[in-house]
Design a binder for these strands. Sequence first.
DNA 1: ATGGTAGCACGGCTA
Length: 269
Amino acid sequence: MKIASFNINGIKARGPALARWLDESRPDLAVLQEIKSTDESFPRDLIEERGYNLETHGQKGFNGVAILSKMPLEDVKRGLPGDESDTQARWIEATVTGQRHALRVCGLYLPNGNPVELEADGSPKPGGKYDYKLAWIARMEARLRDLMALEMPLSLMGDYNIIPQAEDAARPESWREDALFRLPSREAFRRMLHFGLTDAFRARNSGAGHYTFWDYQAGAYDRNDGIRIDHILLNAYAADLLQDCRIDGAVRAGEKPSDHVPIWAELAL
DNA sequence: ATGGTAGCACGGCTA
């Protein structure tokens, strides 16, 4: 089963590019981030006419996530638990069933966190963007503990807005104090690995120069000035079934591309 | 410190 994640940066502007990728890459399941659309205005035909089931968790103008799948999507949950006042659409879950195993999938769009605002003692300013990012991660880790208790294959995939290590950025020094790379962000990613999750890409690839995002500005893609921030994390049940994981980097060179490219994994489900 | 680009939606925020 081929599962993928793609931050499309706006479904209304990305129809042709998304269709091209679906037709070429043919994932069995994909999670999308930054659909920037309400559920009502999402162009469902684009997905459904290609034989996919579709579940969206949208929001007007910003954020928004979705899952599309050739298999039925069961037990769909929308929204990350833990804060009833949080209106941002960044989390969706569903279960799919393969030939031998079921898989719980979480599609996530982790907050960017910039600009970083700190108090005099260095702690995040309450109510600020970076404070929201760290609080959101804490809620995600709480949900992760519950999902791990299911003791079944699990994939948490999406735009983490975290650069795990220096080798995951072309110019790491320029990201040192950025919300995507500063130490508390990297520590949170590492905590999830310590808790038992596998970075699927790093299980199958090594070395620098593998990126999933290039800014639209200043010709970042032409200079390969990228970062690796879109990730597929697997629990041990799923990691034992991992057969391949790659980044579809060439998608960035297409017409009207997203600033992100898809990442996918093949699981022997 | 600023500007560089893009999306949504049509002003200003988000990234």
